[in-house]
């Protein structure tokens, strides 16, 4: 597949060759879009709440990757989910209550983790989403343990930095040894805070996982690629998908250091310009932005 830098440059300049050619129906497209724009609108509201100092704890926005869980959970149903920080969109895409997530971020007892987890430790048994301790990457071996003991399908999400933790790599190996039904997802935004992958390591996570016997795919972040890889690998577990994303904001908080490497949302939307879906996507976007706005306007604090 080439180096991490090569792949990202290709995605950026539009020369990346898709591996999957998923034919999504209009209904599927609008369904994913609805979740995507709601996630994005929700995160915009979170950013505003941080600016307004209504949220006073470190918060990790999923700006730029709101569509990743929307695409994954378009395919995956009934999985246990173990994520870490930057997981607001996972919670929402899995069907978590936006009101409860809002309250969690506001530190209220009515939050999905009773206001104790904040942005980084979202938890909700109702949607099988398990909390995170704050120890980067520990969700991966813990997810493997859950999968081992329960025998139930499990998905765990990490970043390109936590994927470097030695215990994460050992967890890949154990999952392969035991042939566990677990899907590892790496959201690769190329950054550990601001340190790039090429500065930190000379290896790719997919190569390492493959060497353990974990089927692995390196993909860009277009919904079709994510859905294609997920469909293929969800029947070949254990497996790993490394999804190259462009982080839309700072590691924590609401700021940016300039435009992202690419803007998947704009690319996606522009691909339907002039089609019959164009107006429908715009209407959905307006509806979901209003919905997110209303949710935040009705907050108790």
């Amino acid at each position: 597949m080439g180096s991490n830098r090569d792949i990202r440059e290709k995605i950026q300049n539009g020369s990346y060759q898709n591996q999957y050619h998923e034919e999504l129906s209009d209904r599927e497209i609008t369904s994913i879009w609805r979740k995507w724009v709601f996630n994005q609108a929700f995160e915009s509201q979170v950013a505003k709440a941080i600016q307004d100092k209504r949220i006073y704890v470190p918060s990790y926005l999923s700006m730029g990757s709101e569509h990743v869980p929307a695409s994954l959970f378009h395919v995956l149903k009934g999985y246990h989910l173990f994520a870490q920080h930057r997981a607001h969109s996972y919670y929402l895409s899995l069907g978590g209550s936006p009101d409860r997530l809002r309250d969690e971020l506001l530190g209220l007892e009515t939050g999905c983790a009773r206001g104790r987890g904040g942005s980084a430790s979202i938890h909700d048994p109702a949607i099988r989403m398990w909390g995170h301790s704050g120890l980067m990457g520990d969700q991966v071996p813990i997810a493997v343990g859950m999968c081992l003991a329960s025998g139930e399908k499990t998905i765990t999400v990490m970043g390109d930095a936590s994927g470097e933790e030695d215990y994460v790599l050992a967890a890949f190996g154990f999952a392969a040894t035991k042939k566990l039904p677990i899907l590892f997802v790496c959201e690769d935004n190329d950054f550990s805070i601001l340190t790039k992958v090429e500065t930190r390591r000379s290896w790719s996570i997919t190569d390492v996982a493959e060497s353990f016997g974990v089927a692995s795919r390196e993909v860009d972040d277009s919904p079709g690629e994510i859905i294609g890889a997920t469909k293929e690998l969800s029947v070949r577990l254990p497996a790993l998908i490394n999804i190259n994303i462009a982080r839309g904001g700072w590691h924590a908080g609401y700021g940016t250091d300039g435009p992202p490497e690419w803007n998947r949302m704009e690319r996606f939307k522009s691909s339907y310009l002039g089609t019959q879906l164009e107006s429908e996507l715009s209407e959905i976007e307006e509806e979901e932005r209003d919905r997110a706005s209303n949710i935040w306007n009705s907050a108790a604090v």
Binding site: W130, V140, V144, G145, C147, L148, A149
Partner: peptide, 8 residues
């Protein structure tokens, strides 16, 4: 960590 996940 795997043992902890199993207990969970």
């Amino acid at each position: 960590s795997i043992a902890v996940g199993a207990a969970l």
